[in-house]
Structure formats: C-alpha cells, structure tokens
C-alpha cells in the first residue's frame, strides 16, 4: 500500500497525447468511455484514424454543437457525436464482428487493475451491492489486435493498480499489450512489464515503489 498522493507526472491530456502519438496512420480504433475519449483530441495532423463505436458507427466524429445534437447519433457512452464524411452505420452483430473478428487495430480502455501478465479488470469491483454491468469490454479485449490501457498509475487513495494478480473480477486474461499511466508507458511482453518511458521527474526506483508488479527498465534512464 502506498499512501501519499502523486504530484508529479503527466496530466490526463498529456497521457492521451502519448497514446495518440503511438497510433499508426490508417488505424481503426475503438476508444473506451472516460479518459480514452480524450485520445481523439490529440491525433497529430496528417494522421488519419477511423473511430469505431460499438453501437454501430465507423467514422465517428467530434461532439456536435449543442443545437445540432441528435439523440439517435450517439457513442458507446451514450453521448451525442457526429459522423465524418465517409462514415457508415451497421447493426450490433456486424459491429461485434468487427470487434471479435479481429478487424480493429487498437482499443484503448480504462482499468481498475492490470496484472503483470496483462490480465485486465475493468468492469466490476465485485462488491456485493454493486449492479454488475459489462457492456462491450469483454468482447473488445477478446478480439481487438492491440489492447492499450490508459489509467492513473495508482488509485485515488494510493493503492496499486499494476499488480501481480488482479483481485477484481477479470475482463480478460493476458490481453493488455501496453499501459499508459500518468507516470510511465509500459509494454506487456511475455508476461512481464517493460518500462518504455517515464514522465519527467519520475525515477525508476520511485516508479517501482508505486507498482506492486516487478518492472523491467527499458527506458534507457
């Protein structure tokens, strides 16, 4: 258990910028609800990314002006969005054919916990009074080629999120390939966590202290 609050590291927008910078031109991408939605604001000019939303739209555009919002044109978070020129609509079985069939390149999701082997827990804390809800998360992690997680490195009350074994119910086993936190970018390879980059002011020793799972330093620092 780590108790003090982090004051160093990247902001949420900087984390989203880091994710966006890693998306190859021409990718088909699904962004989860919450912090992942910020990624779309940071894709560099000249890079064309097609956004998929599981409720049936390929070519999702930005949030509309308020008076142009259409309650029948929404994203997976049920917020009004727009459709870019060249977008297409489809029904749910086709949408999850894209997801489960391995047609999407990248999915960016939030996380409650990620294990050193890339297990993801992001749908339930397992609390007995919580209403369980899963949405499309289990299908996304089962089918999309690259599952990237964007998350704070630790919980608000300082608990580990990058753990040896997830305590919360799993969304999928050995599915996460990369983790972007406010402190570091970490690749998951062969059941180990490799640190690719650390935020300014973060040392490897400090990062390890804030991480339950053992880290391997590949950042060159």
């Amino acid at each position: 258990m780590v108790t003090e609050k982090n004051t160093i590291g990247w902001s949420r927008n900087e984390m989203a910028q880091k994710v966006a910078a890693d998306i190859p031109d021409g990718s088909y991408v699904n962004l989860g609800i919450g912090i992942p939605e910020l990624v779309a604001d940071h894709v560099p000019p000249g890079i064309e990314v097609i956004y998929h939303t599981e409720n049936g739209l390929l070519g999702m555009g930005p949030v509309p002006e308020k008076d142009l919002a259409d309650p029948e044109l929404i994203n997976a978070g049920k917020k009004c969005v727009t459709a870019i020129p060249g977008a297409c609509y489809f029904h749910h079985a086709d949408s999850f054919t894209m997801i489960r069939g391995g047609h999407l390149d990248i999915c960016v999701l939030g996380a409650l916990q990620v294990s050193k082997e890339g297990d993801l827990a992001n749908w339930s804390t397992g609390a007995p009074d919580a209403i369980p809800a899963v949405g499309g998360a289990m299908d996304l992690v089962a089918g999309v080629k690259n599952i990237w997680v964007i998350t704070e490195h630790n919980t608000k009350d300082g608990k580990f999120k990058l753990v040896n074994q997830c305590a919360f119910p799993l969304t999928g086993k050995q599915v996460v390939t990369r983790i972007y936190t406010n402190l570091a970018i970490i690749n998951v390879k062969e059941k180990n966590l490799y640190v690719r980059e650390m935020a300014p002011g973060v040392t490897f020793e400090e990062l390890q202290r804030l991480t339950e799972a053992k880290l391997i330093n590949e950042s060159g620092k």
Binding site: H92, F96, G143, G172
Partner: peptide
C-alpha cells in the same frame, strides 16, 4: 457481454442453437 448478446440474438434468428466465443473466457461470466 454486449457482443455475446448480439451474437446470441443473431444465432437465434439464423437457426444456430449455440456457438463458441472468446468473449468472457476466464471471467465470472
């Protein structure tokens, strides 16, 4: 899971009684 829900409905309409999916493997669902 949402994709399993969609596929279960699709299968119901298509005369397929059951199918195998990777979604939810190793989870409580």
């Amino acid at each position: 899971p949402q994709g399993t829900l969609a596929e279960r409905i699709r299968a119901g309409g298509a005369g397929i009684p059951a199918f195998y999916t990777p979604s939810s493997v190793n989870t409580p669902l």
